[in-house]
Design a protein around this nucleic acid. Sequence first.
DNA 1: GGTTGCCGGTTTGTCCGACAATCATACGAT
DNA 2: ATCGTATGATTGTCGGACAAACCGGCAACC
Lengths: 261, 261
Amino acid sequence: MSSDPEGVRFEQILIEPAYRKVAVAIGERILSRTLREGERLPPETELARQFGVNRSTVREALRELESGGLVKRRPGSKLMSVSRPQHDVIAEGVSRALVMHDVTFLEVWSALTILEPPIAEAAARARTAEDLAVIVAAAERFVALNADTGLAVHHAAEFFRSVGRATHNQVLGLAQEPLLQLLEPSLQVMIDKVAQARSRIVTAQKRIVDALEARDAEGARTWMAKHIRDFRKGYEIAEIDLELRVTNLRAFRPPLPLVSA
Amino acid sequence: MSSDPEGVRFEQILIEPAYRKVAVAIGERILSRTLREGERLPPETELARQFGVNRSTVREALRELESGGLVKRRPGSKLMSVSRPQHDVIAEGVSRALVMHDVTFLEVWSALTILEPPIAEAAARARTAEDLAVIVAAAERFVALNADTGLAVHHAAEFFRSVGRATHNQVLGLAQEPLLQLLEPSLQVMIDKVAQARSRIVTAQKRIVDALEARDAEGARTWMAKHIRDFRKGYEIAEIDLELRVTNLRAFRPPLPLVSA
DNA sequence: GGTTGCCGGTTTGTCCGACAATCATACGAT
DNA sequence: ATCGTATGATTGTCGGACAAACCGGCAACC
């Protein structure tokens, strides 16, 4: 306030609580691969003993690591084990951040415009036969299941995801994931209001699949671009204000239908 | 294992610990804007009373929200307050995830190839005079400070960030941030080994700035593309294996030099 | 007037100890 | 071999405790 702006300067002294120090210490071990994936952490009491802090403190640190996805509890196990953060979990954090920053549909859509066509292009180059099969399956599921709106949007997004995976570039896959998460709720509204939406999506997907199959990078890019542009048209027809804030993110998704291991 | 695959199916019963329920409950309030940005949370004892759980449980929930950036402690305050997640914090989570997934330099570089040119293009269209000034300042800082390698890479990244902000699309800004974080350590090595790297960066930045000033979207895009391609050349000259895993992410960045409030 | 010192009430950070429920494992019964 | 049971380990949650830090105000002081 009234301190002399020309006076002596001190660096801000940063005081970190113990739970954070513990979290950092364990986190560094994980990032540096001293603790390897799947390896099990010692029990909380043991950690508390080693760090010389109370178990409660260790627990707070574990919650922090847990929500960063660096450790998780394997189903049906008590001990925490080191894990690679799942993409959808990380992306959910990004989505929440974007929601809190009042991101609009227009921003999401425009980011998709930028991101998806090159992804399709890269996928056309890098896809394996297996990737293609997955993509085709996703497209077919959309055709088969688009009666139920909820499932329809899920599989429309799944189509994008499968294309993203086909690039074999994890950075791209992870970058697109929050966009898809934010797209879904609005897509649901749109697809319900616009009669021809489903069929347009089906054709676009078909064209993209054809291009990917032929390894036609240029074609994949342009058709993906069309596909995305179509979404915008759909929004306009459905009279969804593109300047509206994205919202309605389901805070915690119900676990996906999963074949028991 | 030995269960009949054709047998009766039950959905996985999900059992959530109390600390997670509390975190979700508070998180929903924040996401839905019932609790507004900057608003202060009740003290832990009060939260414990309201939720009917122990204070320790509340604390674990708070750690979870805290590491998601949804709440934070305002400097020099004890009570937690609702906050919009800072981009760099979120991006750090993404970076960690990518490191854990063994992302290679090639993947990072190739994602930059895809992302940055359209960002420059969008920036040329959307930039304000103010944005331009910030970008110019960033470029100038790189010229002035590139003797110190650490500062040089920081300001090279800062240049990208300022261009990203000029798009006025937060999604893009947040998408590029993890890439920049992962780029920095490797860039540091490269810039030290390649004599002409600094000057090439300077010229590329200058061209990009010129294009942005002239609102030349096409020029901004192509020069940004060149800029990124240059990085790859630099990597090759420095004999950095592009298939190498990205690593060496500084786990927790030292707080940026900050003018005391 | 502005700075400093002090005081009481609040709130967090950390600790300790405790207990029920669940999981892992081994062992014994069918 | 499958099942049931006993035993020990570990987590989730609880209650209570205390020092340190923060807040606001008020008195003292230069």
